[in-house]
């Protein structure tokens, strides 16, 4: 499917830097994302990919640099701001409250209230049943706490929470790390479906094969800097590995500030 990269990007993170106690976790990184596109963020643990993306999801605030959504500069200082810009995140930890049921987690922070201002739990459960039925028809366990769910069921709840509220920009942090082959395929299908709907997806992953399969473009980071950006068709899995491990930018990719110059 062709992605129009001539228009305004859905998201542009321009020249983002963030440091923790002198360590530059993210160092002048620029990435962008177009509608209907899946952009991978690759790198070792500690390369700064999660930190970068947490600036977009509102968990951190960048020290310098700007974020543009549809060309408009926005300020995202907490997760509520991100949600307001239709940015949804599926965290690696899933960020579920284990003691609550699926519906409470799905609507956490966005509860449905009745005319009296009290929670309408039955309505939330009904909505949850509908969403989960679409996403994972085997899901039946609506009234027990999330702690009793399997890994795949927990993942379903986290995904449902991200896609239920008209997300336009979706951030997925290693969404398949804890999943079996069947569930991984389910996530892959879902990503294709969301692409068709015109969402932009940032996918954080270590696995180059996964990225080659799921993404349109890939950004590689190393030591907080951007090594380069490539169309996944233009580079091989080994090229990507070389970028991740050595910081070498192959001919098919656009080098970033972190690339080694030979």
């Amino acid at each position: 499917m062709a992605i129009d990269r001539n228009g305004t990007p859905l998201v542009e993170m321009r020249d983002i830097s963030i440091a923790f106690g002198g360590v530059k976790a993210v160092d002048h990184v620029t990435v962008d994302l177009f509608p209907g596109e899946v952009v991978g963020l690759l790198g070792h643990n500690g390369a700064g990919k999660s930190t970068l993306i947490k600036c977009l999801s509102g968990a951190y605030q960048q020290d310098s640099g700007d974020i543009y959504i549809n060309g408009d500069k926005v300020s995202i200082s907490n997760p509520r701001d991100a949600r307001r810009h239709n940015i949804e995140t599926i965290y690696q930890t899933l960020a579920l409250a284990d003691n609550l049921d699926a519906a409470s987690n799905l609507f956490l922070g966005r509860e449905i209230v009745g005319p009296t201002g009290l929670l309408d739990d039955n309505k939330m459960e009904a909505e949850t049943r509908k969403v989960m039925h679409r996403l994972n028809p085997n899901f039946k366990n609506f009234t027990s706490p999330v702690s009793s769910y399997s890994g795949g069921q927990r993942q379903s709840v986290a995904i449902a929470r991200a896609v239920h509220f008209n997300a336009r920009i979706l951030i997925m942090d290693e969404p398949t790390a804890a999943l079996g082959p069947h569930e991984t395929q389910m996530v892959a299908d879902l990503i294709q479906e969301l692409k068709r709907q015109g969402l932009g997806i940032f996918l954080i992953d270590h696995d180059v094969h996964q990225v080659k399969k799921l993404c349109d473009r890939a950004n590689v980071m190393k030591n907080g800097q951007l090594v380069g950006t490539a169309n996944v068709e233009d580079v091989s899995a080994d090229d990507l590995l070389g970028m991740i491990i050595a910081g070498k930018c192959p001919p098919g990719a656009i080098p970033g500030p972190g690339a080694i110059h030979e």
Partner: peptide, 28 residues
């Protein structure tokens, strides 16, 4: 009891107790 079960405040109290990080990431 109404606060605990039927209000946002109560829901947030229990969510925060169950997973403080998740609660914060949900914008609480």
């Amino acid at each position: 009891t109404i606060v605990a079960r039927r209000t946002r405040l109560g829901r947030y109290i229990f969510a925060t107790g169950g997973n403080p990080d998740a609660a914060a990431l949900s914008g609480i």
